[in-house]
Write a protein that binds this DNA or RNA. Sequence first.
DNA 1: TGCAAGTATGTAGTATACTGTATAGTTTAA
DNA 2: TTAAACTATACAGTATACTACATACTTGCA
Lengths: 121, 121
Amino acid sequence: MKLISQLSKETGIPIGTIRFYEKTGLFSGKTKKDVTTNNYVYYNEEVVEKLRFIQMAKVVGFSLAEIKEVVDAWYKKQLSKKAKLEVLDRKLLQIDSKIKELKVVKKQIAICKDNIEKGIG
Amino acid sequence: MKLISQLSKETGIPIGTIRFYEKTGLFSGKTKKDVTTNNYVYYNEEVVEKLRFIQMAKVVGFSLAEIKEVVDAWYKKQLSKKAKLEVLDRKLLQIDSKIKELKVVKKQIAICKDNIEKGIG
DNA sequence: TGCAAGTATGTAGTATACTGTATAGTTTAA
DNA sequence: TTAAACTATACAGTATACTACATACTTGCA
């Protein structure tokens, strides 16, 4: 169980950002009930995993709202099995289409490079 | 040569967004010098290509600033051959790393799906 | 014990990328 | 010829995702 600064060090995500993510409901830590002098929040390994997932999903263009959908499908007990699978299947399709787009962009840049090297562009 | 509404129809990008992109320097149309009664702007096929490129690059998480770098490498005569190639090579690396991240995210979602199907998650 | 460092809460500010509104002039088709 | 539709310009407003600041309390170490 880690405090927020350790979480930040492990993931490279600023403390402010972690708090922001927690406020938007992407995950939550826990206070220790036996400690009465403070309300420090502790985070387990699952939160680290979620943060790493968030980091990657963000780079490839998913919004926090989209990421929250997946994270909820992952952990929320309130959602039905069917609803969870539907969300995840939709995401998998989006991911495949993103991979395709990336390959198109890559090809276009390669063509552009070619033209520049040949002195056309 | 198209007017802005046709450009919007062909690409699916709202007129307001197209104007915004033009203002940020991603491309530019031309007014016809022989027409004196208005200052309507006309766009050629190159602009359509740029817009399609922008659309794809955005979905996969590139910012407009990053996209502008590539577009400038593509078309700006002011940049040296070397500078252009450097920008494009950097982007190609970013794209490859994005593809890798997408595959990791995909794998994680697949595992999650599996767990849900088995009734673990 | 005292003080730096860490933590929590709340609120305001910033950057990016639009999106809408107002105003005014132009074109086109009935 | 006039009304609907299109165009340009400017500026305000919104959504998302942070980022910074102020305040106050807590912990850990010299």
